[in-house]
Amino acid sequence: MNKIMFFAHLRDAAGEFINMEAAGKTVAQLKAEVAEKYSLQNIETVMTAINEEFAGNEEIIQDGDVIAFIPPVSGG
């Protein structure tokens, strides 16, 4: 099982997090799937973190990984 976390405008659309089976999928596949399910906007600008580190679109998700979708940041 995987925890998928959302932030900023994605959180407003999809909630704080969901749990789903994502093992074996690439980051890009998961992103596309979740974006469609929750009608997420601007998903092409969203980065991804696996276990609190930035991950590329081709990385394969393992069971237990915590995934976070990271919209362009605006701190400071």
């Binding site: 973190a49 930035f54 919209p71 940041v73 605006s74 701190g75």
Partner: peptide
């Protein structure tokens, strides 16, 4: 401060 605006996951 420039790096905060690039890589730190904080949103306003």
């Amino acid at each position: 401060i420039e790096r905060i605006k690039e890589i730190v996951p904080i949103w306003k």
